[in-house]
Design a protein around this nucleic acid. Sequence first.
DNA 1: TAGATTGTTAATCGATTAACAATC
DNA 2: TAGATTGTTAATCGATTAACAATC
Lengths: 222, 222
Amino acid sequence: MNRNEKVSDAVVRRLPGYYRHLRELETEGVMRLSSSALGQRMGLTASQIRQDINCFGEFGQQGYGYNVPMLKRRIGQILGIDKAHHVVIVGAGNIGLAVANYPTFQNEGFRLGALFDVDPQKIGQTVNGVPVFSVASLPEYLLSHRIDILVIATPAAQAQGIVEIASAGRVRAIWNFAPIDLTVPDDMTVGNVHLSDSLMALSFRMHERSVLSQDNPQWVKE
Amino acid sequence: MNRNEKVSDAVVRRLPGYYRHLRELETEGVMRLSSSALGQRMGLTASQIRQDINCFGEFGQQGYGYNVPMLKRRIGQILGIDKAHHVVIVGAGNIGLAVANYPTFQNEGFRLGALFDVDPQKIGQTVNGVPVFSVASLPEYLLSHRIDILVIATPAAQAQGIVEIASAGRVRAIWNFAPIDLTVPDDMTVGNVHLSDSLMALSFRMHERSVLSQDNPQWVKE
DNA sequence: TAGATTGTTAATCGATTAACAATC
DNA sequence: TAGATTGTTAATCGATTAACAATC
């Protein structure tokens, strides 16, 4: 058993997928599930699923499999989404608003306290009843509110400066949508959503077969 | 040399990061770069960077390093973003609009032809001069326009149906923002942006240290 | 009980790192 | 030329898969 060891990135990347599928299965009324059935559904091997789950405990039963609602609840706990999280969004542009309105975001215990922007047109407005404040007031806001997660939805040039403010304001984690790699203190967690990286990787995969298969001269030494 | 072999996911995930950093370095006026300097900047080993780059060719020079503008251009070609891509977005909600307005998206040769929605309020409007059509007209649109990438920004329940239409319309790739794993034909590429998965992984990482370090009973067998 | 399926160890596979000859 | 740094092979590390005893 690997408990108390740091969980590998490979496992962490799969964990939300487990939760998502278990939620679907629960909605479909499925009560009981074997690792091979889940593997078939998710495109993973049964072995990998058992290994992944056993990083966290023994949640199954020999000869039976896993109880869907129980396993879903457990993985929810492991992910920490059974707890409420206090969130603010910096940048009330298209991405900031998309996050603010994202349904999963609202349903899983993430509580949005405020948005922050530099645009005087936006400051003073509300989004779903959540106020938009000036970024100038962010340091003070963070001192008077316990914020777990700060969402960066600003242009890349502003992002690192926001991290400094977040750090001084004892924010625990940054969810970064700006297309830049941030430098953060050791005790802060960062998760990136690099949309342009995702799109470029898609573009690569799309071209890959055709280009690689014909040994395209563009790719070899000039 | 690994050319003509399928490039591993691990490499593909890093590739856009290389491009992003090289673009920054070019803007900063840096002309020449060693693998160790890039490694330091990106938090990777020099060895890994040389291995990654050599999947695609010999772009460096012993004793000198890499020429920044040249390497950036080459990686751009490898990613396929030197070519124009024709794109449509299905779903003109918050996420669809955020993608339509995303600057990197517009700057790197991704040409948005149309958005599609089911909301009569939105149909007939334009977004940045791009028309919003009814989803009912999507099959016909795809037959008369050569679309490379279709962006799914609909609720999860609609996503798989859109894939069928895209497949019939000879779309080459799907960029999926719906929180569901899609089933696609073999010749279609999928890239997922699962926002809720990203947020859950962040939540996990944020809680991980505190919870794991104290052997929290919540994680062990009941 | 017999059959099924887990938890877990061992074997395999692949990715990362180290080392160094080639060479600019 | 001497110093630097690549390209590439070999060694290490870690993640995935296979196998099977434990057990429900």
